[in-house]
Design a protein around this nucleic acid. Structure first.
Length: 864
RNA sequence: GCCGAAGUGGUGGAACUGGUAGACGCGCCGGACUCAAAAUCCGGUGCCAGAAAUGGCGUGAGGGUUCGAGUCCCUCCUUCGGCACCA
């Protein structure tokens, strides 16, 4: 046994033996309880970053722990291989996205193997392979035939110089990232998944997700955004035609306070009015500038323009002016809103800007309304009653809505309606590196789905995009085809699918990666995923889409669960300090920590930094998420090469609990490494004694009774901590046991049994986190079988029993002393001890004791 | 702007259900070993006052509930994640 801890050699050996024995490959075994442990698959960007290492380490720890509980654990891995970065890399390096992607997969797979994850590699999938995406295309055709996919126009960012559609990410301050041109909104035809058809179920089933973080569930509920309201029709006459303008509102009780209505720039009424109104036309054009991102829209200045048109108030018949406003979203409700300046803050500000009337229709006792300035209570729907509203007067919010809805329904000018904030999911992308949409456009037959026997529609892999438009649209060999129905020449769809589509069902394909259909019955054994682990940034979109897909696949009888992920763990990000200098042009140049020298104050806090290259100062930019753009990443490969995979795993698990963000610390890494070295040298130093198999003493020797109880307490604690995924305290539990073992007096014969027992426990506690070193030591110390097949340690209840316990003595809630009482002492006994206690006498100073609060097993509080 | 989180020593974090705040590390200080350094080992370490015993203060800020609040409630501040074409 080598006395020096050499992670490189022991890790390589352990990994080779695991691979040789095929330890992590699993099959459906009905005799065992299954556990499907899934981490979000990576985008193959080139090499692993620290976020990946964290994600997959958490997954691996859970998978190995579940295995120790005797379960049949599936932990697969694959590649979310389609996406925009491959196209960017292609343009930069003149390499085809496919070649770039496959080479990235190879190197990242190599790195994952070095980290020693218990992955079943026989199930590996890459979404860019035709064998994967053909089933996505197949599903598309089925859903299209069922009407769950449809075509309509949608708004995209258009770069007028590059003549191409841009992703939101590629629009910076309203300008194209390459061309610098001001971006325009453009309407183009797209395919949509009818996710709104499942809105109600997606919302209701959130209640069944007992093991999801509450915050994620709340975010999903708000994203779906169910609201009960009333659709109100405002009649108007245009070119002698009778029509109605529909608006949706949750505040129908304020209908009598409407002083204008506002429509989105894209609303038909706006376009109509703009035909002979150049000022309005210019305004609508202005609204079309800038990105389509909602965050950008929400912060822009609220602007509007009168259309010159009027609609009639459905109750009073008054003329109501129609405005175009940039804050009205065409995609929500009817693309039009009724404005009640007196009781909506945004309408109030708008009315002030454009001198529109403000009419109070809600009042609250003891509050005075003033049209001069806004007060929070104007919008309070819980306390007010209607005024100035004819038959609604003195009714509250609910009563008024019921009454007005009935009134409108009778007049056929409105109806109660449930609306969702959730919109249908537009999946068309005018890009090359994605799954081709399996549609053929025929002049005779319209949109025809590609028949099953012609699938997959294979994406040519040797294309290098040039940044201008979609490469597929320039490839006649791809788009020229014949109609499957009439066999006339026809054009293949050249858009590809949103990459979120691939990641919405991959978890089901892992169950049967080689199936000759989309999903076969093996999925019934493995689904649902028992534990899903991934970044919090996916809390809404990816998770919602996966839930939606699961429900659609269930309705197609492909899977038999309604929810894909039973338990969800959302990991925090990995952060590190940043350093920068401002260039003369005012741009920030970021430096990596390896390029700078940091000076510390006497307490070890960083005070300044300088660039090693020139010795001049650089600014400290604070702690930020590790990213390429801030140049503050730490390469996991360097970490593995220097310290080994176990140190990397240990540090990441120890530095913070999985859901919190993790701050990188070089000295923290060294500390973790030091612990493993200590463990190794402790084991090698005492190897002979540990290997000695002593008889278990009949009773725990009284000299180490409390020592042994401490070990047992740690077992009890780490058991709980594993279950609640608080791995940082599992590690500190392991450190405590090593500290205890080092304090054990080995000159006492009886203690040798406890040395072996304690070491055995320690290795099993740490195994899921640092599998290589514990696997090796287990073998070296002649413990039974392999640690891979061991059970997780369990506390011995007898060893936990105490005869006497310490109670904290508080006086008026302040800790003053401790008292020792028999473990089964009752409150009468404790009270009598406390009344006679010197410390109590000292602090009460003769004042009478009013009350004695006793918390069993914990504390006594004397109230005076 | 909207939705969702987080703020605890010099520092990462612990405190599970309202019950001893600071476990376990890192750093720092002191010591041992060494010609010396590194590594390793031992001891100390929330802040203020004090030689010490001890006392006071202390979980972003301000209020509240409670015998008792890091934990529950209200208001505010700061930082972070998402906002539908980054993945």
């Amino acid at each position: 046994m080598n006395v020096v801890y050499n992670p490189q050699s022991i890790e390589k050996k352990a990994q080779e033996s695991w691979e040789h024995e095929n330890l992590y490959q699993v099959t459906e075994d009905l005799s065992k309880e299954k556990f499907y442990c899934l981490s979000m698959f990576p985008y193959p960007s080139g090499k692993l970053h620290m976020g990946h290492v964290r994600n997959y380490t958490i997954g691996d720890v859970i998978a190995r722990y579940q295995r120790m509980l005797g379960k049949n654990v599936l932990q697969p891995m694959g590649w979310d291989a389609f996406g925009l970065p491959a196209e960017n890399a292609a343009m930069q390096n003149n390499i085809a996205p496919a070649a770039w992607t496959y080479s990235n997969i190879a190197s990242m797979k190599q790195q994952l193997k070095q980290l020693g994850f218990a992955i079943d590699w026989s199930r590996e999938i890459a979404t860019c392979q035709p064998s994967y995406y053909r089933w996505e295309q197949w599903l598309f055709t089925k859903l299209f035939e069922r009407g769950l996919i449809y075509r309509k126009t949608g708004t995209v960012n258009w770069d007028p110089i590059d003549q191409t559609v841009l992703a939101n990410e590629q629009v910076i301050d309203g300008k194209g990232w390459r061309s610098g041109a001001v971006i325009e909104k453009r309407e183009i035809p797209m395919y949509y998944f009818r996710i709104t058809q499942y809105a109600e179920e997606l919302l209701n089933d959130i209640d069944t997700l007992d093991h999801w973080p509450e915050q994620v569930k709340t975010m999903q509920r708000n994203w779906i955004g169910k609201s009960e309201g009333v659709t109100i029709h405002f009649p108007y006459t245009l070119d002698d035609q009778q029509a109605v303008l529909k608006v949706f509102t949750t505040r129908a009780d304020t209908l009598m306070g409407v002083t204008y209505v506002a429509v989105a720039a894209e609303h038909p009424l706006a376009s109509h009015a703009a035909q002979n109104n150049s000022e309005l036309d210019a305004f609508i054009e202005e609204c079309k500038r800038g990105s389509v991102a909602e965050a950008d829209l929400a912060v822009q200045e609220k602007k509007g323009q009168f259309t010159g048109l009027y609609v009639q108030h459905p109750i009073s018949g008054e003329n109501i002016p129609v405005w175009v406003a940039n804050y009205v979203l065409m995609s929500y409700g009817e693309g039009a809103v009724m404005a009640v300046p007196a009781h909506d803050e945004r309408d109030f500000a708008f009315a002030k800007t454009y001198q529109l009337p403000i009419k109070q229709v809600i009042s609250i006792e003891n509050e005075t309304f003033s049209a001069d300035s806004w007060s929070e209570w104007y919008a309070d729907k819980h306390r007010g009653v209607c005024i100035n509203s004819e038959s609604l007067n003195s009714l509250n919010h609910h009563q008024a809505i019921e009454k007005i809805a009935a009134l409108l329904e009778e007049k056929k000018l409105g109806e109660k309606q449930t609306t969702f904030r959730l919109r249908d999911w537009g999946i068309s992308r005018q890009r090359y590196w994605g799954c081709p949409i399996p549609i053929i456009h025929c002049n005779q037959c319209g949109d025809v789905t590609v028949p099953e026997e012609q699938l997959p529609v294979v994406l040519p892999e040797d294309v290098i995009p040039d940044g201008a438009g979609s490469p597929l649209a320039k490839l006649p060999s791809f788009y020229e085809t014949t109609c499957p129905k009439c066999h006339q020449p026809a054009k293949r769809e050249t858009d590809t699918m949103d990459t979120f589509v691939e990641s919405s069902w991959y978890f089901a394909r892992y169950a049967c990666p080689d199936a000759s259909q989309m999903i076969d019955k093996r999925a019934d054994y493995w689904l649902a995923v028992d534990q899903y682990i991934g970044g919090i940034e996916h809390a809404i979109l990816h998770l919602l889409y996966s839930r939606f897909f699961t429900k659609m696949m269930r309705d197609l009888n492909l899977v038999h669960v309604s929810e894909p992920f039973q338990k969800l763990l959302t990991q925090g990000m990995v952060t590190a300090p940043t350093f920068y200098r401002e260039t003369p042009e005012g741009r920030k140049q970021w430096f990596n920590k390896t390029e700078v020298d940091i000076s510390l104050d006497p307490k070890g806090r960083p005070i300044s930094a300088s660039l090693i290259a020139d010795g001049n100062t650089v600014a400290m930019g604070g702690i930020e998420k590790m990213s390429k753009s801030k140049n503050n990443g730490v390469d996991p490969q360097t970490l593995i090469d220097t310290y080994g995979a176990d140190t990397a795993r240990l540090f990441i698990m120890f530095a913070s609990p999985p859901e919190q963000s993790l701050e990188w610390s070089d000295s923290g890494v060294q500390g973790s490494h030091r612990f493993l070295k200590r463990l190794w040298s402790f084991a090698t130093q005492h190897a002979a004694l540990i290997r000695t198999q002593k008889e278990k003493p009949n009773a725990i020797p009284s000299s180490i009774k409390s020592w042994w109880r401490e070990v047992q307490q740690v077992i009890q604690q780490t058991e709980k901590d594993y279950q609640r995924h608080q791995f940082n305290t599992v590690v500190s539990g392991g450190m405590k046991i090593l500290n205890l073992l080092e304090s054990l007096d080995l000159s006492i014969e009886n203690n040798i049994y406890y040395l072996r027992e304690g070491t055995n426990i320690l290795l099993r506690i740490l195994y899921p986190i640092v599998p290589h070193i514990t696997y090796t030591l287990w073998e070296e110390l002649n413990f039974k079988d392999s640690i891979v097949t061991q059970k997780s340690p369990q506390a011995d209840p007898h060893a936990l029993i105490q005869d006497e316990i310490d109670l904290v003595l508080q006086i008026l809630g302040k800790t003053r002393d401790k008292i020792t009482v028999p473990a089964q002492a009752d409150s009468t006994y404790i009270e009598s001890v406390v009344r006679d206690h010197a410390t109590v006498a000292k602090f009460t100073e003769g004042r009478p004791i009013k009350r004695i609060v006793i918390v069993p097993g914990r504390l006594v509080n004397v109230v005076i």
